[in-house]
Simulated assay, not measured.
Amino acid sequence: MARTQTKRRPAPTPAAAGEQNPKAPCACGSGRKYKHCHGSAYAPVVTRPFEGLPGEVHWVALRELVPAATAVLTTKDGRTATLASVLPGGAPGLVRANGEVLLGVQLAASSDDVSRDLGTALAAALEAPAGNPVDPGPVGAEGSAGPRLQELLDPAAELEVTVHDDFGFWLEGTGAGPAALAGLEQANEAIIPTVLLAGLGAAYWCRPAADRAHLRWVRPEPEEQLLDALARLGGAEQLTLGEGTKYAGAFRAHGLVVPVWDVPADVPAADWTGPATELDQRLTAALAVTDPLTADERRSRAGLLSRQVTLR
Rank of each mutant, 00 (worst) to 15 (best):
M1E: 12
M1V: 08
R3N: 08
R3P: 11
Q5S: 14
P10G: 11
P10L: 08
A11P: 10
P14W: 05
Q20Y: 00
A24I: 06
C26Y: 08
C26A: 09
S30I: 13
S30P: 12
G31Y: 07
K33R: 15
K33V: 13
H36A: 15
H38C: 15
H38N: 04
A41K: 13
A43R: 07
R48S: 14
R48P: 01
P49W: 03
F50K: 00
G52W: 08
G55R: 03
W59C: 07
W59M: 04
A61P: 08
V66I: 15
T70M: 04
V72M: 11
K76N: 06
G78H: 09
G78F: 05
R79F: 01
A84G: 07
L87Q: 11
P88C: 05
G89P: 09
A91L: 11
A91N: 02
A91G: 10
V95C: 06
N98E: 14
V101D: 07
L103K: 01
A108Y: 00
A108Q: 12
A108M: 09
S111K: 02
S111G: 15
R116W: 03
R116F: 06
D117Y: 01
L118P: 03
L118G: 04
L118Y: 00
T120H: 00
A121M: 11
A125F: 01
P129W: 00
A130W: 02
G131A: 03
G131H: 01
G131N: 04
P133Y: 08
V134Q: 03
G137I: 00
P138G: 11
P138M: 06
V139G: 07
A141M: 11
G143A: 03
R148S: 12
L149N: 00
Q150Y: 00
A157Q: 14
E158K: 14
L159R: 00
E160I: 14
E160T: 15
V161I: 15
V161L: 12
T162R: 13
F167S: 01
G173L: 07
T174R: 11
G177P: 08
P178Y: 00
P178I: 05
P178E: 13
A180R: 10
E185P: 04
A187K: 07
N188E: 08
I191G: 09
I192K: 06
A198M: 07
G201W: 03
A202T: 10
W205T: 05
W205D: 07
A209N: 03
R219C: 13
P220L: 05
E221L: 10
E223S: 15
E223L: 12
E223M: 12
L233D: 07
A236E: 13
E237A: 15
T240K: 06
E243W: 09
G244E: 09
G244K: 07
Y247K: 02
H254L: 13
V257M: 11
D262G: 01
V263N: 04
V263Q: 06
P264Y: 03
A265D: 06
Q281K: 14
T284H: 07
A286Y: 05
A288V: 04
A288W: 05
P292F: 00
T294H: 02
A295D: 14
R301P: 04
A302T: 12
A302V: 12
V309W: 10
T310V: 14
L311R: 15
L311N: 07
